[in-house]
Design a protein around this nucleic acid. Structure first.
Lengths: 333, 333
DNA sequence: TTGTAAGCGTTATCAC
DNA sequence: GTGATAACGCTTACAA
C-alpha cells in the first residue's frame, strides 16, 4: 500500500493524500475525511525512506556513548531516548568504546546515516583537556549537523555543550573532607577525560587552599572495576591515606570494600566520597557519600536544546550545571 | 555530491559507480580504481535514504526494552549494539516502559521505520504466562519482520526466542537453600512477567519436592528499589523467614540491607540469593550469591540468529540457555 | 564490462 | 482546494 494506491482508492491525487498525511490546512474537511478513511481501512503508513529521500531527514538523532552498560550512560541514554521520542524523533545508538580511533570511526559511520543531530554522551568525547587537540572529528561532524555534548565542552560552531561544574564539585567535596579533619586524601580515577581532569583540578585546589601538599603518591589511576580496585588498594603496604575522593562511584565502592576487608571503621578510620550518585552508592555498605551530577538534568536541557536548534531557534553554546554533594554514611560531616 | 557527480567526474555511468560502491565483481580493475579515486577525492558517501528506498532496507535493527537504565537491559543493549554493528547493522533503540499499551505502541511505532528485524529485550514482552494472551502485537510484528526475544518465549511464525531456564535455576537455588537447612524462604519479586512466573514455579517445586509448604505470606511483590524493599521488610513485625530468594539482585540487596539494619548475621541468621549477577551483587556487603543468567550469551546467540535469518538460513525457534548459580557470601553452602 | 533507463514512494512547485 | 509532475539518489534489469 503506497500513496498511489490510497490516492486511487480515495479518488484524489497523491498530492492530496500527502497533504492529509502531513496535516496541511489546505484540504477541505470533506476530502480529508475521505482520504483518512481509506488510509485507516488499508492500514496505510507512509514509507519513511521515500520521505527521507525527499526531505533529507528521517527524524533521527544519533547517540554515541563509549558503552551503555555503564550506569551513567545508561541513565543518560534512557532519558534521551524517551524524551526525544516524545518530540517525535527516533534514536540510533552506537557504543563506540573509548579509544580515540574508535570514537572517530563511530562518529564517521553515524554521520553517513544522515542523522538530524548528534549527541555525544560522556566527557570522553571532549578530549583530555591536556594533550594536543583531538576533537577535530567532532568539529567536522558539526559542519554537517548540530552536535550536542553531555558533560563535555568543546568550543565550535554548531556544537552545544552541557556540562557539570566538576572542578567546583570536587573542590567542595574535598574541602569538606579536609574541614572534617582529613589530611591525606587519596584521589582515585579511572580515566584521563576532560571531566576527570576537572575533578583533579578541584581536588588540588582544595588541598592548596587549605595549605596541604599535593602528593603524587596519593593519586591513583586504575580501571573502574570494584574487585580490582579493592585488591590494588589491599596490596598497598600501609594505610597511608585517611580518606578517598573517587571520580566514579565504582572506584569508591572498591575503596570501601578494601576498608571493610581491613576491618577499618568507616567513616572514622576512613572517609570516602564517590561520584555520580549511581545505584552503586546505595548498594554499598556503608552507603556512599557521593556527588550527584544530575545526569537527567543535563539530558533534559540537551533534548530541549536539540529541538530548539532543529527549529532554528538560538541556543547557548555552553551551559554549566551545578552538582550536589549527597551526604550518606561514608563521611562524618 | 551524489552518484551522478561521481559518474560524471569518473567518466562512467551511475550504474558503474553503484557497482563499485557495492563491490560488484563485474567491474574491471582499471575502472574500479578510477571510480574509487574520484570517490575518495570527493569524500563521497552514498545516500542511505535513496538506497533504503530502492532496497526497502536501511540495514537497521529495532531494539525495544522497557528501560535501558536497568542494568540487565543495558548490558543486553550494549552487547547487541556492538555485535550488530560488527555485522554492518545499526540499531534504533526504544524504551517502551512496561505497560501493555506502551509496549504495543512502541512496537507499532518502530515497525513504521521499516526495520529489518525487531529485538525485544526482557521477558516482559513474552506476556505474564498466566493471564489471557496479550502477545498478539508481537505476532503482528512478526508478519512483517523477524522478531527476536531476549529471555522471552512466544510461539509463532518468524518469532525466535532465546531464554533462560529460569524455572530450573530457581529450583536449584531454592533447593540449595533448603538443603543448607532453610525452612522459611521468602520469595521476593517485582514483576508479573513470564520470567518471574517461571522463577516462582521453580521456587514452589523446590519446596514441594522437599516436603515444605507453599505459604502465601512468604511471597512478596514490590518495586525493585533498594531502599523501598529494605523499608518494607523492616516494617514487618518478626523475622518470619530465614532466607530470601529474590527475582532481581536489587530486591536481594534490599533484603541484605534490612538484615544489616536489624543486626542479623548473614548468612547464618539469614541467607539471601539474588538473580542476574549484576554489579549490584558485588557492590553489596556481604556480596550476593546470585543466579547468573548469562545475558551476554543470550545476546550473542540472538545477534547471530538475526544474521542467519536475514540471510535466509534456518534457525531454531526456541533456544533455552542454562543459568549458573554464583556462590558468594550471602549463603553458607 | 559498461551504459541506459525504469522504478522505489514521497514531497514540493506549479498550474488551474 | 486540487491535480500533474518534477525532483530526491540509488539499484538493477536489460541492452549493447
Amino acid at each position: 500500500m503506497n500513496i498511489y494506491d490510497i490516492a486511487k482508492l480515495a479518488g484524489v491525487s497523491t498530492a492530496t493524500v500527502s497533504r492529509v498525511v502531513n496535516g496541511s490546512s489546505k484540504v477541505s474537511e470533506h476530502t480529508r475525511q475521505k482520504v483518512l478513511k481509506v488510509m485507516e481501512e488499508n492500514h496505510y503508513t507512509p514509507n519513511v525512506f521515500a520521505r527521507g529521500l525527499g526531505l533529507d531527514s528521517m527524524q533521527i538523532i544519533g547517540i554515541i556513548c563509549p558503552d551503555v552498560s555503564d550506569n551513567y550512560m545508561a541513565r543518560a541514554v534512557s532519558f534521551l531516548v524517551r524524551r526525544l521520542k516524545e518530540y517525535g524523533y527516533d534514536c540510533i545508538l552506537y557504543c563506540s568504546g573509548s579509544g580515540q580511533k574508535q570514537k572517530e570511526e563511530a562518529v564517521e559511520l553515524i554521520m553517513r546515516k544522515r542523522i538530524d543531530a548528534l549527541v555525544l554522551v560522556g566527557s570522553s568525547y571532549a578530549g583530555s583537556g591536556t594533550e594536543e587537540d583531538n576533537t577535530e572529528y567532532v568539529r567536522n561532524a558539526a559542519e554537517k549537523v548540530p552536535v550536542f555534548l553531555i558533560n563535555g565542552k568543546i568550543k565550535g560552531d554548531n556544537i552545544y555543550s552541557v556540562y557539570n561544574k566538576d572542578e567546583e564539585a570536587a573542590f567542595q567535596a574535598v574541602s569538606a573532607l579536609i574541614e572534617s579533619g582529613r589530611k591525606r586524601i587519596l584521589f582515585l580515577t579511572d580515566a584521563g577525560t576532560c571531566s576527570a581532569m576537572q575533578k583533579m583540578a578541584g581536588y588540588e585546589r582544595a588541598l592548596k587552599e587549605h595549605g596541604l601538599p599535593i602528593l603524587g603518591e596519593l593519586k591513583l589511576h586504575m580501571d573502574n572495576r570494584i574487585h580490582l580496585v579493592r585488591d590494588i588498594l589491599l596490596a598497598r603496604k600501609k594505610p597511608e591515606y585517611d580518606s578517598v575522593f573517587a571520580t566514579e562511584d565504582g572506584l569508591a565502592v572498591g575503596a570501601v570494600k578494601c576498608a571493610n576487608a581491613k576491618g577499618l571503621e568507616i567513616p572514622s578510620d576512613l572517609s570516602v566520597i564517590g561520584y555520580n550518585n549511581s545505584e552503586y552508592s546505595v548498594c554499598c555498605e556503608p552507603e556512599l557519600t557521593t556527588v550527584d551530577n544530575k545526569v537527567e538534568r543535563l539530558c533534559e536541557i540537551t533534548a530541549d536544546n536539540i529541538m530548539k536548534v532543529l527549529k532554528g531557534e538560538s541556543v547557548l553554546g555552553e551551559i554549566p550545571v551545578d552538582c550536589v554533594l549527597v551526604r550518606r554514611c561514608t563521611t562524618d560531616f
